[in-house]
Structure formats: C-alpha cells, structure tokens
Write a protein that binds this DNA or RNA. Sequence first.
DNA 1: ACAATCATACCGACCGGTCGGTATACAAAA
DNA 2: TTTTGTATACCGACCGGTCGGTATGATTGT
Lengths: 200, 200
Amino acid sequence: MRGRAEETRERILAAAEECFARQGYDATGVAEICERAGVSKGAFFHHFPTKQAVFLALLERWLKGLEEQLTTLRAGAATVPAAMMQMAGTAQQVFEMARERLFIFLEFLNRAARDPQVWKATIQPYHRYREFFARMIEAGVAEGSLRPVDPEAAASAILSMAIGLVLQATMDPEGADWGDLVRKGLRILLDGLQGSEATG
Amino acid sequence: MRGRAEETRERILAAAEECFARQGYDATGVAEICERAGVSKGAFFHHFPTKQAVFLALLERWLKGLEEQLTTLRAGAATVPAAMMQMAGTAQQVFEMARERLFIFLEFLNRAARDPQVWKATIQPYHRYREFFARMIEAGVAEGSLRPVDPEAAASAILSMAIGLVLQATMDPEGADWGDLVRKGLRILLDGLQGSEATG
DNA sequence: ACAATCATACCGACCGGTCGGTATACAAAA
DNA sequence: TTTTGTATACCGACCGGTCGGTATGATTGT
C-alpha cells in the first residue's frame, strides 16, 4: 500500500480536471470533486490546502505536458517547414480528442486574467513557447528553408494562428473542418514565409 | 424625466460590464453591481429578470458593435488588402484601450462554452464574421489584388490570427509590441495570399 | 506508539432572487 | 386647479440554500 496517498491525490486531480472542464472553476464545488473522486472532504483538504491549489497543480501539469510534446515534435523533423506541418498534423488529433479536456484551456485563461498567481504560472511557459517558435524560425532561415524574416514577428504570427484555431475549434467543433483549415492556413503562412517578393 | 428608467438600465449595464470584466461573472454579485450603479437590488430585478439576462444584454451589444465597426471599415477602403491593413491599424487602437474592457471578451468565451444560450448568441454573429471575411477574400480575388485562393481557408487564417493576437494582447499586454506584430503578421499573411508560387 | 491518512459533522459567510411596500409621473375626473 | 386613479419605477429587508474551509475523531501503515 505504498502509494495510497499518491493515488488519492491523483484521483482528486483527475476528478477536478473533469469538473473544471465541464462546468468551470467557480461552478464546481469541492464536494462535487470529492464525490467524483470517491474521496471525503477531509482527504481533499489533507492533500491540497485550498481549491485553488488543485487548479494550479492542474495548470502546471498541463503546460508542462504541452511543452514536452512540442519539443519532441521539433526534434523529430528534418526541416523547419516539415516540423511545422507535422505540428499541424497533430493539431487535428488535438481537435478530435475529447472536447471536454480542451474546455479547461479556456478556464485557465479566464482565471489567469484575474488571479496574479495563475497569471504568472501561465505566462511564463507561454513566453517559452514564443521563444521556442522564434528559435525555430531562426533555424529555418539559417537552413535556407525560409526567407529572411523577423523571427519574432513570424513566430507571433504562427502562434497567433494556432491559438485562434484551437479556440475556434474548441468553441465550434462542428462549424468547420478544422483539421483541414489548419493545414491550409499553415500553407498560406508558409507561402508568405518562403516567398521571395519584397515586403515594404 | 422621460428616460429615467432607461438611464438606470444603462447604469446597471455599465456597472455590470465593469465588474464582469474585472472579476468574472460568477465572482460578481448582484449586490456589487447595484452598489457600483448606485441602484437598489429591487431596481436591478425590475429591469432584468436575472443576472444572466444582464450578461446576455452586454454580450449582444458588444457583438453588434463589433460587426458594425467591421462593415464600415470595409466599406471605406478601396481594395481588399487596403481594408485589411486598415483593420490592422485599428487593432492597435483596440489594444491600447482600457484593458478591462477587453477582459470581458474572455468571460464571454468562457460562458459560451458552458451556457447553450450564451453559446448561441455568440456563435451566430461569429459565423457572420467568418462569412464577412470570406466574402472579402472573394472580392480581393475578383479585383485581382489577391491570387486565387480558397476563400474559406484564407478567411479562417485571417480570423484565427486576429483572434489569437487579441487573446495574447489581452493576456500579456506588456509582453510584446502587439500593434507592430499585428502589422507584420498581416504582412506575412498577405505575402502568402498575394504571392504566385504553386502550392501543392 | 505514533504519524500519516481519511471520514463526518459542522460553521459562518455569502449569494441570487423574492416580496411587501413606497415614491414618482401623468392623465382623467371633479 | 385640485383630486383621484393607476401604472411604472424603485427600495431594502429577508429567505432558502450553497459554498469553502475547519475541527475532531477514526483508521491505517510502520
């Protein structure tokens, strides 16, 4: 019975993630999380000092996983455009995965806008993402697969489109063939990044 | 004393907008809105059947204003790329305006994800935006200022980038020169839309 | 024994919404 | 002009219920 506490903690986290995703943070009661986790309120507050702590733990885990997925994807591709198309491919998987898990992304954002602690925990990894994309663009320019562009601006454009697409696909999954639109959108962007005409 | 009721209603809406933007929907109490509006709770429920009704009124007004601004901007520009650059220019103004007003955008999204009524009120205008951009692209292709592209895909790309930029600028206003990034991002996109190379 | 882990009962604060009643505006009647 | 009638606008105490968090005791592992 080595990891009983650990398992309880895990069950609480999983239950909380489900509830937060489906109903949002405020609308989810501690009692509800406990019930879904099959755990008493005492156990809950034994493992986490407050409801918010659970939220923060969830947030950090999510952001960490995202970063890992990104870096391994980049490492596995030969050229920068190839890596980007690869990422677009996995985006489709993301859209097809349970929407509920994606909704919590919104909840994270919403709380980050109000809670300084959540904001800090969100914005720091996010800055790393931006840096990651900027470096990728730089590498693309260096390897000659992209024309010389402002890496920050290009990275921002890519990241912006990605964020916008994820958001739209989350909010309106039936509204369009998002997997297709991701590919086509990236293609347009790459055309802009690879073309040779002068740009004021 | 003709519009006394109207003015009260307006004060309630303004106060609610402020509170929702700063603290979110759930965290904002009706009592708080009333206090800020200088109105009693009785007056509040005289003008609105429920707290949610206030939120919905706010949402509809916001979306309507956005649509109007978009169409007038399009009508005032000669070519499609010019209209788009014009829009990018106003984006900078948007970023520079009070942050608080932008935060409610997040709250709208967050609630749209959970409340079917809010979702419907949000997604229908949004579909009109998409159509608007698609038609604009078509016009650009027709007038020869854009190369022949899939209007839906191009519109999606533009809208996605716009959404992503607004979101990032809202969350992290000091993190970058967003006005500049909007212009550069759009430039890259336009390069992709105007260039002539074949695209698989 | 004794510390970590979990369960139950409970507290005080708070919240959305209701309700009985008052103030104001205005038109018709006197 | 004054009075009366009435619909609208507004007030603020109050209710039923929920919520995050605590206190305290039981159980389990070592």
